[in-house]
Design a protein around this nucleic acid. Structure first.
Lengths: 253, 253
DNA sequence: TTAAAAAGTTAGATACATCAAACTTTTTGC
DNA sequence: GCAAAAAGTTTGATGTATCTAACTTTTTAA
């Protein structure tokens, strides 16, 4: 396999655009890419030639455009960076959608894996830790809106100290009941306890840095409930129920 | 005054390098810049010519290199972005110095003012709100280190619920005593209550988005205690005691 | 004070990302 | 099925950032 060459920001943008267009339509046309990236048609041709040389897109003049397996992997990695950043901006910094989108588009090209990883952990921690969470972020919102910080903090403390105690208690009590990932509902979140067996999933997951302790979120089902769609460490995955049955989870909320 | 043209990342790097070298030595030499940015000598010459044309550096062949007033302002703005990012990485995401430095170097060129601003507010809020703070971040550290998230959260709650109540109480009680910024000690932090008068400082501060409610930190004194050095919204400022006496602050910690 | 070393500049080349304009291929609608 | 429209490509240009190698100026130190 070719070594993972560094791609320029521009080329990353092209890959990402192709990924998104492919997801929306049957095939990506050069014109769509040009439109999406706001560049000239001829720039797209040059970019495609280059990406094709690198083995990241399947391209021949006048032919349809698709990502190779390798290209798709790269594109998904970029999309993950994008989404992670946006998540952080929207959920934690309380930035509006549009601005968050714009910012992630630029930052996705320069963020390191380490920072990305930490950002993911941080968003998890804020959302899950009873001492963080919605009420605390409400305090932050007030602070951003120019409200007195004492008041903002007070809001997130005095009002919630009792609530906090309850949440902490509930959090503590919830610990024993393990369920299978397969059995979880859309929207539910939990902590992976164990991944049984040593099959393909095990390998795939650990390659992504997923192991027991990782936080997993169920996004939905697909193919007549045959598959479960999850998000873990910023990756969107689709697992067969059969495989999801091998993963035990301790659910939250 | 020339319109504030967009600078490329590269040119921003040159400005920032000149700022830092000037702070360390008497004058910036082309060689130092080249070394710092790990580029060829001749690249520095081209960059200087360009920055000189834009009125950001004082430069003539073989002459010494300094920043113009405008150039200094731009450079300091870049340094502020850098520092704000680094602060967030180190203080909140608990990234090590070296990695944080490397990451900020890249991200400083692409972060928007809005995000920067929010990041500053967020770091303030985490550090000041009793519901956030050191214990909470200790919980986050445990989560990063792969400790069970329940345990990490519990650590930051059960252990601290009583502590939290005390902190909240202390925070509440601390509210009445206003002091003058002039009288605060190095390391102390507080919230600006009022900026008296309508002089130069008032204008300068409001141009930076500083007003009552902003969080200010005393960094130290300079010129035989004649001046006070503060940090507010990521800006490092040096005020005459006379001016600092016009600012009333509600101190924390 | 002057010649060698160090610092700085110029010239010319490469690589990248983009464009407009001219051209070619494919698609569409009658 | 064929002509016009749409899509895609090629060519040649621009601007940025970098390099190496050759050259010039300044500094240093004997």
């Amino acid at each position: 396999m070719a070594a993972k060459e560094r791609l320029s920001s521009s080329m990353e943008d092209y890959l990402e655009a192709i990924l998104h267009i492919s997801a929306e339509k049957q095939a990506a046309r050069a014109k769509d890419i040009a439109k999406r990236l706001k560049v000239n048609n001829s720039s797209v041709t040059s970019a495609l030639r280059l990406l094709s040389e690198k083995g990241l897109v399947n391209y021949a003049p006048y032919d349809i455009i698709t990502l190779t397996a390798q290209g798709k992997k790269r594109a998904e990695e970029i999309a993950r960076r994008h989404e992670t950043l946006k998540d952080f901006f929207v959920k934690i910094l309380l930035i509006d959608e549009t601005e968050a989108e714009k910012a992630s588009c630029k930052m996705e090209h320069v963020i390191s894996n380490k920072i990305l990883d930490r950002l993911i952990s941080f968003v998890e921690f804020v959302e899950i830790c009873p001492r963080g969470g919605k009420e605390w972020l409400r305090g932050f919102r007030r602070h951003c809106e120019g409200d007195d910080i004492s008041a903002s903090c007070e809001d997130s403390i005095s009002l919630c100290l009792e609530d906090l105690r309850k949440k902490a208690q509930a959090f503590k009590n919830s610990q024993q009941e393990a369920v299978l990932l397969k059995e979880m509902d859309a929207g539910q979140r939990g902590k992976i306890l164990q991944i049984k067996g040593h099959g393909e999933i095990n390998k795939r997951l650990s390659a992504m840095g997923v192991s027991s302790g990782s936080i997993v979120e169920v996004e939905g089902r697909a193919l007549q409930e045959e598959r479960i769609e999850i998000k873990v460490r910023g990756y969107h995955l689709s697992l067969r129920n059969e495989d999801a049955a091998k993963i035990s989870v301790e659910p939250y909320n």
